[in-house]
Design a protein around this nucleic acid. Sequence first.
DNA 1: TAGATTGTTAATCGATTAACAATC
DNA 2: TAGATTGTTAATCGATTAACAATC
Lengths: 205, 205
Amino acid sequence: MSIITIPDIVVGRLPIYLRALNFLVAEGREITSSQELGDRLGISSAQIRKDLSHFGEFGKQGTGYDISFLRDQLQRILQVDRIWDVVLIGAGDLGHALAHYGGFSGRGFRIAAVFDSDPDKVGQPLANLVIQDSQDLVDVVRQQAIYVALIATPASGAQPVADALVSAGIRAILNYAPITLTVPHGVRVQYIDPVAHLQRMTFYL
Amino acid sequence: MSIITIPDIVVGRLPIYLRALNFLVAEGREITSSQELGDRLGISSAQIRKDLSHFGEFGKQGTGYDISFLRDQLQRILQVDRIWDVVLIGAGDLGHALAHYGGFSGRGFRIAAVFDSDPDKVGQPLANLVIQDSQDLVDVVRQQAIYVALIATPASGAQPVADALVSAGIRAILNYAPITLTVPHGVRVQYIDPVAHLQRMTFYL
DNA sequence: TAGATTGTTAATCGATTAACAATC
DNA sequence: TAGATTGTTAATCGATTAACAATC
């Protein structure tokens, strides 16, 4: 038996390729090349071809890639040729910004429920939703069969929320709280910490 | 002549180490080890020791690391033992969330100016600032000697804004717009695209 | 001292790139 | 056909890990 695994670093570049292809589609372009794509993204053309070769043959020698076709293929590979319901925990400023963000739909995601533990917020409307009580988080996530979560709570609440999410069946967490989460094997976590990104740059200034 | 360069991937982990050390300080802890730090972060102890060894010797054999001391050293290395003024462009939902975010101060940053191109927003207060006209962006950034920027505009505006920022002397850009920016050598860019992070995880679901 | 943990070396592992045959 | 660009191989490059002497 042979298990073929795709390097995670390759998976991480696919959304960037997809984003660029959508941009090219919006520009009205029909054909591109690994060279052009690489120039735009600051990635070598060889790397793009190698990355794509893990999944199949999507181009034509001498011509390049049909942009719409390659986009469809990447959407399929990343499983965003469907819409994923997402649960949002935390209805503070960041939660509000995420709830109003127009960029999820069209790229495979929809915020389907919002939770907060503040009694003053529970019951209030947020975008097209109503803020629910965090006490009901596990039940609702389980019942609605939601597998993707955004954590937008203060750092102190993030680990307990993550534990609850995992027990409710969540499989992917995007964590905005500036803390490293501990989750069981099989649950994926990505982090967004703007300060960490800034600090990575000030090193060079 | 020999140029010793630190791998960027190492620089990228330092803010994670720093964050964990601050967490340990908050817990009242005084000493830690590469083993404990690695367990918390999901990183091997060897990697942590190797990363730190690029910058000096910060530990004691048999004992480990003095948490406060190592934190101070990392702050110095990352140059966040000072406060960097940051300019924020875009006063939409995300801009509001960033302006109100309490996590910048204490980690080396302070939003010092906010800009938007919408005449209805210019002049309005936002957190402890007043939204300024994007037309004045270059002048203000230059005069206040700001080197770090947050782009929180729609995708369509991000590249022109980046061009203006570069001409104003900005050296580090954290870009929330879902688009790859083209900037001159010497200007650093980091990206935050929540959808890209989510797509990287749905691949595995 | 005995036990523990660092800093560093060398080996391993994995990712990137250069190059080119295949072919549109 | 001539020119262009893919997909793939092999070489290079770089990052991670295992192991251990040094030493607190």
